[in-house]
Amino acid sequence: MTERRGVSRRGFLKGLGAAAVTGPVGFAGIAMAAKADEEAAAVPVLGPGATPVRLKVNGKVHDLSIEPRVTLLDALRDTIGLTGPKEVCDRGACGGCTVLLDGMAVCGCMMLAIDVGDREVTTVEGLCGPDGAPSDLQQQFVAKDALQCGYCTCGMVTAAEGLLRSKPVLSPDEVRAGISGNLCRCGTYTRIVEAVIATSALRRKGK
């Protein structure tokens, strides 16, 4: 390992106004001995074998027994049996596995199931109405033909839903930026933008 380079307190001070000194420098070298000295309760270490993991998915609680290495995507597909989130690139580069965590779009392939904790997972299935009816956004995807082979569609719809929740009014460029983590090999982007804009307009009218 590299030898620890100088803490550079001197360098850090250099040129800083007096008022700023209360900032970083204030912390340098402070030993929080009291806390560290306390005999910590044993830290739970799970796995590497199967361990209990509770997931809240589309409003339902699932108690699973999975290894810590299992990604959220694999848990959703292989253990819970959902089909919406797809594995495409397995590296967070395509968005095919997009799900919402407390309403925020994330890639299921780059998150461990064990890391989800109490957060509510919503997949494309969970965007439907209670009777399985397509949501307004899903209907617009169909109406505008914003899908071809359909393999990217679940991730696209979910990413777009996350986008609409964070920003209800969007320009076409903002839609493109907002779904820029999703790839479509059939080339449906033009119509996805139309579908998202149309949904945004419908939701505003509905309010």
Partner: peptide, 19 residues
């Protein structure tokens, strides 16, 4: 964590342009 008997937490700051 400080090495030694006490094992306290140690902060350090480092300037990005210096090391």
């Amino acid at each position: 964590v400080e090495i030694g008997a006490k094992g306290g937490l140690v902060w350090r700051t480092v300037e990005l342009s210096d090391g």
